[in-house]
Each structure stands twice: as C-alpha cells, then as structure tokens.
C-alpha cells in the first residue's frame, strides 16, 4: 500500500510541474520579465500570489516559465543518456569480449566527469547555455544507462526464448530489438525517472552558476542566483524556486521508486 503511495504521489507531483509548464504556454498572470519598481520584493498578496522579486517581477509567472526549462532540459538530457547509453550498453553486452571491454572502458571515462565538470568543459569551448547544460547532464548520465542496459542484455541473451529467436534465424539487430531490449525496458524506465530527478538538480545548479539557462530567461536556478543578494530583504525570491526544485526532484524520485516496486512484486515487502 505504502508502495502504491510512492507511485501516486510521484505522478501527482510531476503532473503538477508538467501542467504548470504547459499552462505557462497559454496563460501567465503577468509578463515574467515586466519590471514593476512600485512592487519590489513583496510577499505573497492577492495581486502577486507568490510575491515579487527585486525588480518587482511576478514570482509565480517566472516560476511557471521556469517549469518549462526544467521539464525540457530534463527530458532531452535523460533522452540523450538513454539513447547513447542504451545503444552502447546493448552492443557491449551482446558482442562481449573485446568490443565490450573497449566500450565499457570508454564509458568509464565519463564517470570521471560529473555533469558540472562536463558543463565546465563545454562552457569553455562553446558559449554556456541551455544546450551545453543539457548535453553535459546527458553525457554525465550515459554511464548509468550503459551499465544497466549491458547487465540486462548479459542476463537476457542466454535465455531460452532468445535462443529460440536465434534458431528462427533472427540476426543480432532483430534479436536485440525484438527479443532482448523489451525485457530490459523495465529497469531503464525506472532509471530514467530517477535520472530526471538528478537532471533537475543539475540543471538548477548549472543555471545558478551561470553555466545553464541564459540569465535573461527565467529559470529556477537563475531565480535563486538573483535572490541570493536580497536574502536579507525578502526570503520569497529564494523560497519559491527552491521549494519548486524540491517538489520536482521529490516527484521524479518517488515516481522512480513507485515504478520499480510496481514492476517488481518482490520489493513490495522490503
């Protein structure tokens, strides 16, 4: 029961964020960049439900626009990691021997570069921005998916039904696509949800450092960076995006936990 709760709660939390991001496309209470020097650093009120920042900009509007970035960056970064890691892991696991050794050694090198180091390297080469942040987070997440796919493929490729497929004349690509990878999908979906949580944290951190979303675009990390200078005057510009990050990260990780337990009845007990 408690386990089902994870799934429901996770879906609800993530659902609110996605709904907020979608809502921001059609409706916003205020222009998120409109300056209003008569209402700077105000607390929540009827006009501004979540208060205003140091330029009098509406925090709710900025929060909603920020939700877009969080969702998009997360999906693209994790999608990149899933695709690259999945292919590398599947080939390594299926081919084995030297191919496996070389591919996994290369993937291991990525372990030495967590998202923030990768972002620093990319920022040195290209202009820091949303694209470099997404790529950095994605690349840093590749090893997890590569290892996971590889171990699933290793354990599945010897099973009878895969042997049967091979006996029917299926080539390596068809075997991987039709027989092996569907069996490996469950753990990958769970990991994707967990990695979304990490990606949201990483994106916020990179934006906070000025290595992510450009400063003129409202993002949760940018909002926090700007709020730091005004902590003594109003806590709301720091509280609002911070709580939104906690909300979203918690949502994705609960969803991951929920999905894992959903797919694996053995774990419902532990």
């Amino acid at each position: 029961m408690r386990r089902r709760l994870n799934l429901v709660l996770g879906l609800a939390l993530v659902g609110v964020v996605v709904a907020g991001a979608l809502l921001s496309l059609v409706w916003l209470p205020y222009d998120p960049n409109a300056l209003d020097f008569a209402h700077q650093l105000q607390g929540p009120s009827l006009q501004h439900w979540l208060g205003t920042d140091q330029f009098g900009r509406d925090l709710l509007s900025r929060l909603l626009v920020g939700a877009r970035g969080t969702v998009v960056v997360g999906i693209i970064a994790v999608g990149l990691a899933l695709t690259v890691g999945g292919i590398v892991g599947a080939v390594a696991g299926y081919a084995g021997a030297v191919v496996d050794e070389i591919l996994m050694r290369l993937v291991d090198v990525l372990y030495a570069f967590p998202a923030i180091l990768m972002a620093l390297l990319l920022a040195a080469v290209y202009q820091p921005g949303t694209l470099t942040a997404m790529t950095a987070i994605g690349l840093a997440t590749v090893p997890i998916f590569a290892r996971l796919t590889r171990s699933s493929v290793l354990s599945l490729k010897g099973l009878d039904y895969v042997e049967a497929g091979r006996a029917l004349g299926a080539g390596p690509t068809r075997l991987l696509r039709r027989y092996i990878l569907p069996g490996a999908l469950g753990p990958l979906v769970v990991q994707a949800s967990m990695s979304m949580a990490v990606a949201v944290l990483a994106e916020a951190a990179l934006s906070f450092l000025g290595l992510g979303t450009p400063p003129d675009v409202p993002s949760w990390g940018n909002m926090l960076r700007e709020a730091q200078g005004f902590l003594a005057m109003s806590p709301y510009p720091a509280l609002v995006p911070g709580l939104a990050i906690v909300w979203t990260v918690l949502g994705w990780s609960l969803l991951g936990d929920g999905l894992r337990d959903f797919g694996d009845p053995h774990r419902r007990r532990a």
Binding site: L201, A205, L224, Q228, G242, V246, V249, L250
Partner: peptide, 11 residues
C-alpha cells in the same frame, strides 16, 4: 535528497 545543497546553503 531532493533538497539542492546550494539552496539549503541559502536557507
């Protein structure tokens, strides 16, 4: 685990 360390720092 969902709380970003830098936000915790701000708080």
């Amino acid at each position: 685990a969902a709380v970003p360390s830098f936000w915790l720092g701000l708080m």
